[in-house]
Write a protein that binds this DNA or RNA. Structure first.
Length: 122
DNA sequence: CATCTGACCTAGT
DNA sequence: AACTAGGCCAGAT
């Protein structure tokens, strides 16, 4: 505990990821941004890599990449584990990709579906 | 000890 | 509108 010992980056990431309700997903970039490092999306993945055995368990399966792809599915145990879990939470997935991604995307900064335009304008 | 990759994203050209 | 390059930190070889 040394003074100034701010919460580890991974801790913040875990906290944010744990803040994602079931049936909703978030992206690495956004999580990284909420964690305090807008460009360190890579670290988020690395942090989640260590999420195994952490208590309380971190729903890493709710974290997907920018296009809603289950990039980390390969790191999940069991056959089709990630999609199975997401399906159990109410998230539809197809071909290793999240359906209605923009609809299930969770924004801790907004609490709920406050879709902000900017990324996609058709 | 040095180098590279890694659950990626953002910005600039 | 698309592509390239850079960035971020740590673990692993």
């Amino acid at each position: 505990m040394a003074a100034g010992a701010q919460v580890g980056f991974a801790e913040t990431v875990f906290a944010v990821v744990r803040g994602i309700p079931a049936g909703r997903v978030a992206t690495y970039g956004d999580v990284a941004r909420w964690a305090g490092s807008p460009g360190a999306a890579r670290r988020v993945g690395w942090a989640l890599n260590r999420s195994g055995g952490v208590e309380p368990p971190v729903p890493a399966h709710r974290v997907v990449n920018r296009w809603g792809g289950l990039t980390g599915a390969v790191h999940f145990p069991g056959p089709g584990g990630m999609e199975a879990v997401l399906a159990a939470e109410g998230v539809e997935t197809e071909g290793g990709r999240v359906l209605h991604f923009a609809a299930v995307r969770f924004d801790p900064a907004s609490d709920i579906c406050t879709q902000r335009q900017g990324t996609k304008t058709t």
